[in-house]
Amino acid sequence: MKILLKAFLLTAPINFVYAAEGQKSAGLPQMDIATFPSQLFWLVITFSLLYLFMWKFVIPRLGATIEERRDKISNDINDADNLNTEATDILKKYDEQMANASQESNEIITNSKKAMLDHLETLKKENEEKVNSLISESQAKIKAQEEKSKIEIRNATLDTVKAIVSRYIENIPSDEEINKKLN
């Protein structure tokens, strides 16, 4: 803004002076050949300076910055791609491990179930055998007791019979005789 103000201040009085003096050259100012050398001279100077500035300063620096940014962006994209593939790999591995683990756990569950059932079966069998043997033992005991009781009853009967008979008769019958009668 300061520059523009300066320009105005520098040129405005000159313009006013020219306006007051009246038009010096008739026709278009563009056709005033006298001004050509000055215009060309300053054009060459300013444009050469601009060209040098652009060539030596602006283009190398801007080009480098733009190139740098392009590199950075492509590097970042590469990095992102690499990380992405890495992440995909990890996910795949994780999925595999999860599948393996679930399979393993399933196996473990089935195996332990089977083992448990087997164990139960054997226990059942053992107990049955034990119970059976106990039953047969008891049965044998009962039978023996029965036999014993039978003999004891007979003996008691014999003794009773003998006692009763001896009270009424002198002659005591022998055991064989009583047994014969009892049967």
């Binding site: 320009a7 520098l10 040129t11 000159i14 313009n15 006298a34 001004t35 050398p37 000055s38 215009q39 001279f41 300053w42 300013t46």
Partner: peptide
């Protein structure tokens, strides 16, 4: 004449 003019400015 290579005066510094308003054009040059």
């Amino acid at each position: 004449d290579i005066s510094f003019t308003n054009s040059s400015l």
